[in-house]
């Protein structure tokens, strides 16, 4: 990995009982890069991502941020997570808070901004995704696509150095996938560093700088889309429906 690597896991192992879900995975993402984690169901994509910000505790291996092992103390983790945004498959917007409060809660509570600053920023972000009129609405009043876009904005409000997307469009109705993908395209164009777990091979081929193909808890290939499409590995060809 080069010097600009922001987030990296080395030799990651995750074991649930006797079952080894992740078996020595090493993945990294450099500044401004968009990396997709692809692979069949049960390959361990989401687990790798959840280990990256310690929603799952890794059984073995290292998680490095700017080349340094992450401080796993309570405080250390809170600081680290503030810089590593995460977008969930099921949005996980705070059901008891308005859209505006969903976005401002973390920056205000973590002392990053004053309430006024946070609200100004939140309204600006909402304006950008065309949902400023929903600022006072509650999550339940939004469509799935709107919820996911708000969830992305909520992560952005902490000014993270890298954004993790855990199957961001899998829980959406097909007609709502587009609006979320468009927002992700915009972020990529703005130079946001992104790591995306996805099933959507077409979207990955279009947006990714690099694709990491996982199977059975191991990295099968880690290469740019052009290399993937030229691959003669039958497993990869099947997965990407390449003829």
């Amino acid at each position: 990995m080069n010097a600009d690597t922001i987030l990296e896991v080395r030799g990651l192992v995750k074991q649930f009982g006797d079952h080894r879900v992740i078996d020595g995975v090493s993945v990294g993402v450099t500044r401004g890069e968009v990396v997709f984690l692809l692979g069949p169901s049960g390959a361990g994509k989401s687990t790798v991502m959840r280990c990256m910000n310690f929603l799952e505790t890794p059984t073995g291996g290292e998680v490095l941020f700017h080349g340094q092992p992450v401080d796993r103390s309570e405080n250390g983790l809170n600081h680290y997570r503030a810089k590593v945004g995460m977008v969930f498959q099921h949005f996980n917007l705070f059901a008891n808070l308005t859209i505006l409060d969903n976005i401002t809660l973390a920056p205000v509570k973590s002392g990053l901004m004053t309430r006024t600053e946070a609200e100004t920023q939140a309204l600006h972000l909402l304006h950008r995704i065309g949902l400023h009129d929903k600022a006072r609405a509650y999550p339940s009043q939004l469509s799935g696509g709107q919820k996911q876009r708000v969830a992305i904005v909520r992560a952005l409000a902490m000014n993270p150095e890298v954004l993790l997307f855990d199957e961001p469009t899998s829980a959406l109705d097909p007609e709502m996938v587009g609006e979320v993908e468009n927002l992700m395209r915009e972020l990529a164009k703005d130079g946001m560093t992104m790591l995306v777990v996805s099933h959507d091979t077409d979207f990955a081929m279009e947006l990714a700088d690099r694709i990491v193909f996982l199977a059975d808890g191991k990295v099968v290939v880690d290469a740019p889309p052009s290399v993937i499409s030229a691959s003669d590995n039958s497993r990869i060809r099947d997965f990407f429906s390449l003829r």
Binding site: L55, N78, R81, V84, M86, A106, K109
Partner: peptide, 14 residues
């Protein structure tokens, strides 16, 4: 839903 806690923690909240 456990996702609510995960979302909070992922934002760096204690």
């Amino acid at each position: 839903d456990s996702g609510q806690m995960e979302a909070g923690r992922s934002l760096g909240l204690s």
